[in-house]
Nucleic acid binder design. Structure first.
Lengths: 196, 196
DNA sequence: AACAATTCGAACATCTCTGTTCAGGTTCCG
DNA sequence: CGGAACCTGAACAGAGATGTTCGAATTGTT
């Protein structure tokens, strides 16, 4: 039954350990982007050697955690209704994106230190497309300005949400205020220019 | 003549070397925030031991380079006329800040990896005050919106300029377009809300 | 029960970087 | 010119981290 190329299914305990390692790695990396492999193994309740048996290098582990997190995030974003008035949709997207970014800010830093830029970008592709799609539609319908490139507006979206996360982290902004502030900023930045 | 607390003046060759090290360190850190001490010494045309004779640790050297760069930047910003229409002043400030941030983006990363957050913030104090002052005045005069905190607007200023630098670095924005895009973004984000 | 897959810790090999020591040479400064 | 300050390269010590090897024990699968 097993095709020549298909690897034999892992044993149950191996699968459990892999899952535990991924979960522990995510937790550890969120706390400290420079956490070492030993710490991750310990938190996963597993020997360091076992970890290396499943992930041949630290970079590979970080990549796996990062990719999986982006997948999860994209799945969460799938539930957001992006139809209707683009401005309202933008607010909904902000509300949902905010917590995700805030939560995994440190994980992104870890990724930036061990993964090539293109790989990080590629991993972001699907969530990026959601934002990009909404912005493009908003422009077409005249709800958003057209004198700035979609790419820039996407970058701005990212940037503003991230900045809010940093400000919360620094104690200069509260958790509850963040979505409102982000929204007030982006809605103004995206609005069509009056004098055209 | 030398007071008890005053250190004896360094010898001329020592002063030259210190200057060479600072300059080399700035160049190296701009190219690679993780550059090692040996590389910096080599570029300064000096032995590693000599470097450690003047800076007792890598962190101290990074701090010195960073502080000096911020000083230089602040001095450059001093020439910018921040009086008159706040909107026009903002544009002038953007034009001047843009190149500085673009140039020393990598240096900031190096600082973030070896200096405590408060120290980085403290080093930014003077340039930060310029921005903050302009924004406050613009708000008072009704040129800028008042429904967002000055702190947030300052953070946004930083963030947008930085994002532009990243986008240029990634090839998604050209060097010449950057100031215009930054300005178009910030002016919109700072403008008073119409429906108040 | 038997076999293979998996795990374990401890030890090992390496690498890279930081920071120090030393002994001898060079440069400055009065 | 004489002494102190300074520089030098090489070598050393040490901290961490990654990744590997080993033999023995354990656990899943059939």
């Amino acid at each position: 039954m097993s095709s020549p190329t298909a690897e034999r299914a892992k044993r149950a305990d191996a699968q459990r350990n892999i899952a535990a390692i991924l979960e522990a790695a995510r937790d550890c990396l969120v706390e400290d982007p420079d956490v070492n492999v030993g710490e991750i193994a310990k938190r996963a309740g597993v020997g360091r050697v076992t970890l290396y048996g499943h992930f041949s290098s630290r970079a590979e582990l970080v990549d796996a955690v990062f990719a999986r997190t982006l997948e999860d995030s994209d799945h969460a974003l799938e539930a957001v209704d992006l139809s209707g008035d683009p401005r309202a949709a933008l607010d909904r997207l902000i509300a949902s994106s905010w917590h995700i970014v805030d939560q995994f800010r440190s994980l992104l830093i870890a990724a930036q230190r061990s993964m090539p830029q293109e790989r990080i970008r590629a991993t972001h592709e699907r969530p990026l497309r959601r934002i990009s799609g909404l912005i493009a539609r908003g422009r077409d319908e005249g709800s958003f300005r057209s004198d700035l490139s979609v790419e820039w507006m996407v970058a701005l979206f990212h940037s503003v949400v991230h900045t809010a996360a940093d400000e919360v982290n620094a104690g200069r902004l509260t958790d509850e205020d963040a979505p409102r502030v982000i929204s007030a900023t982006l809605q103004a930045a995206f609005a069509p220019t009056s004098h055209m």
